[in-house]
Every structure is written in C-alpha cells, then in structure tokens.
C-alpha cells in the first residue's frame, strides 16, 4: 500500500465537479469520465493538492463511523486506483 504521507492532487486536465442533471459528482479527465461511488466522492472532495492521505483519513474518521486504519486503507486504495488511471498524481 502507498504511504499515508503522500499528497494526492488532480492532474492537469482533470475536473471534479457536481453534475446538476445527474445529481451526481463526476470526474472528467482527458478522454475519460468516471462516476465515483459515494465513498470515493467523499475522498475526492478533500483532494486539494495540499492535504496528505493521512489528513484526508483524519477528516473522514471524524465524520464516519469506521476505524481510522480501515479508512486509511480504503482511501489509499481508491487514490492509487485513480492514479493508475491517470486522473491523480500521488
């Protein structure tokens, strides 16, 4: 698993925005389009190029009823997946 000190940021040409028509968050990337699930949406809302995975997990742990360890693991996995698809830098 990637370390929790890593700082995720959206790559150039990637836009994460709310779509009024679908009433859903969408991640728009060069010739790709992702519809993140609810968990991923909460993670991506905290991606600002400054917060580390650890800080993102802290924020989520304060709001959701799950052990922090599990949240870190899920957050790192979701971000790594999007990094491999070219949407994020880690």
């Amino acid at each position: 698993m990637i370390g929790e000190s890593r700082v995720p940021r959206f790559r150039r040409g990637v836009r994460f925005r709310y779509d009024q028509i679908r009433r859903a968050w969408v991640l728009l990337a060069p010739e790709k389009l992702y519809m993140p699930d609810e968990v991923a949406v909460e993670i991506l809302k905290l991606v600002d190029g400054e917060r580390s995975i650890a800080l993102i997990a802290d924020d989520l742990a304060s709001r959701f009823d799950a052990p922090r360890e599990l949240i870190v693991r899920d957050t790192a996995a979701a971000l790594e997946d999007l990094s491999l698809r070219g949407a994020l830098e880690l």
Binding site: D19, I21, R22, V26, L28, E31, L33
Partner: peptide, 8 residues
C-alpha cells in the same frame, strides 16, 4: 442541457 459532459 441534455447532460453531455464532454465534447470532442
């Protein structure tokens, strides 16, 4: 207006 997100 129709919900298209990307134009190529």
């Amino acid at each position: 207006a129709l919900g298209i997100l990307q134009v190529h």
